[in-house]
Amino acid sequence: MEFLDVTLVSKGKFWFKKENSLRWQYTDPYNYIIVINDGVVQISDDGKDQEFQVKGNRIFEQVNNIIVASMKGDVIDNDDFDVQLYENDQYYLVRLKPLKSEVLQVIHEMEMYFKKTTLQISRIRMNEPNDDYTLIRYTNRIINEPIPSSVFSL
């Protein structure tokens, strides 16, 4: 957080299963779980659970869509963003600028880094309009292992 001159670090686990199921679970500094399955969002926050439709929240919907698209490999085929491509010797960078003004108020642009050797997403950076950003790094990746369906519900 630029204004506060503070960097906050959260850690957790991330599961994804084709087509649109994901679980985003923070374990540090506190337990917080977001599960998205069949267009329904479930959030568990300190024992308080809530549920709503992804479609009811435009910003949530687009962030979710772009993260899912980055996993599935069709991030470029997206009408909601202006897409630019860059590369260096290690990464492909996909820079996405939201086209909808309500999303643009919250997310100035998203940068997705794909490792050239594996073509897998390595990190996502969400830049906000005020110089703040959120950086998501994916580490300790396990691919194509069976995931029990119970993971995608609270």
Binding site: M1, F3, L4, L8, S10, D45, I59, I107, T134, I136
Partner: peptide, 23 residues
């Protein structure tokens, strides 16, 4: 988050997904 800089307090609130609500 609350930061104390010589009695000037800075406060910020951000979502679980990292997006800031206000400071």
């Amino acid at each position: 988050v609350i930061v104390n800089a010589d009695s000037l307090y800075k406060a910020g609130f951000l979502s679980g997904m990292g997006i800031k609500f206000f400071d």
